[in-house]
C-alpha cells in the first residue's frame, strides 16, 4: 500500500511538467528496445516498398524468364538463388514488398473506415442501432475469415484491388467491436454531455470528442491489423486466390516454390522469411504502442 501511494505521488508530480500526449507516448515507446527495433524495421520495409520499383524494372528484372539460369542455389550473384524460370529470388522478394505492404495498409484503411464508423455509431447511439450493428458483425465473424476471403475473391474476381477489399471487409467487424468497446466508457462522460449542451451536433461530438478519447485501442488494432492482413493476404495468395501471377507476391511465390520444395527449399524459405519479418515488425510495434499508450497495463 505504502509503495503504491508513493508511485501515485510520483506520477502526480510528473503531470506538472506538461507534455503533449504524443511526446509522452514517444517517451514511453523509446524505452522499449524490441519496439524500437520493430519501428526501425517498419521504416526500412516501407522504404523498400516505395523505392524498389525505381531500382528494378518490372518487365526486365521481375517477370522476364532466363531458363538457362533456373534453379541456381543462393550465391554472391543471386543472393536468394533463382527460381524455376531463372528469375532472381532476391529481386522478386524485394520488389514484392510493395504488394504485401499495400494490401496490408489499404485493407486496414478499408476496415477502419467501415469498422470504426460502425463502431462509433453503435457505441454512441446504443439501443436498437447498436444491437443491429453488433448482430451484423456477428454474422460476419461467424464465418472463418479465410473462407470469407475465398468467397469474396471468387465472387469479384482475382485482382489486388479485390484482395484489399476482401480482407478489409473480412476484418471490419473486429474494428467495429474494438471501437464500440472503446467508445462505451467515453459515451457517458460529462464532457460529452457538456459538448451536447453547448450545441455540438452528433457528428461533431462523435469525431471531435468521442473518437479522440477512444483512440488508443484503435491505434493498436490498426498496427496489429496490418500484420494480420498481410498474413491473411499471403494465405489467400498461397491458395492461388490472391495477387495473380506473375506478380512477385510473397504468398504466391511460396505457393510456386512449394512444387520444387524437395530439392530447392530456398524458394520457399526466403518469401516466408520476408512475410514473417514484416508481420513480426508490425506486431512488435503494436505491442510497443499498446504499452506506450497505456503504461498502466505494463508491469
Amino acid at each position: 500500500m505504502a509503495r503504491k501511494n508513493k508511485k501515485a505521488a510520483a506520477s502526480g508530480q510528473k503531470e506538472y511538467k506538461k507534455r503533449s500526449l504524443a511526446a509522452e507516448v514517444w517517451r514511453n515507446y523509446k524505452k522499449n528496445p524490441s519496439a524500437m527495433i520493430a519501428l526501425f524495421l517498419v521504416i526500412v520495409i516501407v522504404f523498400v516498398a516505395i523505392f524498389a520499383q525505381f531500382f528494378y524494372d518490372f518487365k526486365k528484372d521481375i517477370v522476364k524468364q532466363h531458363v538457362k539460369e533456373k534453379f541456381q542455389k543462393p550465391s554472391a550473384e543471386h543472393w536468394f538463388g533463382t527460381d524455376n524460370y531463372g528469375r532472381d529470388v532476391f529481386t522478386r522478394v524485394i520488389y514484392g514488398t510493395k504488394y504485401s505492404l499495400s494490401v496490408g495498409v489499404v485493407a486496414v484503411a478499408i476496415s477502419c473506415i467501415v469498422g470504426v464508423s460502425l463502431g462509433l455509431i453503435a457505441g454512441y447511439y446504443g439501443g436498437v442501432i447498436e444491437d443491429l450493428i453488433l448482430r451484423f458483425c456477428e454474422v460476419f465473424t461467424g464465418i472463418p475469415s479465410i473462407l470469407m476471403g475465398v468467397a469474396l475473391m471468387t465472387a469479384f474476381g482475382q485482382s489486388i484491388g479485390v484482395l484489399m477489399l476482401a480482407i478489409g471487409l473480412v476484418y471490419s467487424p473486429m474494428y467495429c467491436r474494438t471501437t464500440r468497446a472503446a467508445v462505451l466508457p467515453v459515451r457517458d462522460q460529462e464532457y460529452i454531455e457538456a459538448a451536447r449542451v453547448a450545441g455540438v451536433g452528433d457528428l461533431g461530438i462523435m469525431f471531435n470528442h468521442v473518437l479522440p478519447n477512444a483512440l488508443s485501442p484503435i491505434i493498436v488494432q490498426v498496427t496489429m491489423g496490418i500484420a494480420s492482413a498481410i498474413l491473411c493476404a499471403s494465405g489467400l495468395s498461397f491458395l492461388g486466390l490472391g495477387v495473380p501471377i506473375p506478380m512477385p507476391e510473397w504468398g504466391a511465390m511460396l505457393s510456386e516454390g512449394r512444387e520444387f520444395m524437395r530439392d530447392y527449399m530456398y524458394l520457399t524459405i526466403f518469401p516466408g522469411l520476408a512475410i514473417m519479418i514484416t508481420v513480426l515488425s508490425f506486431n512488435l510495434m503494436g505491442d510497443g504502442l499498446r504499452d506506450a499508450l497505456d503504461p498502466k497495463l505494463k508491469q
Binding site: M1, A2, R3, N5, K6, A9
Partner: peptide, 8 residues
C-alpha cells in the same frame, strides 16, 4: 500517515 511504511 499513508506511506509511513506501516503495511510494509
Amino acid at each position: 500517515e499513508t506511506g509511513a511504511g506501516k503495511t510494509t
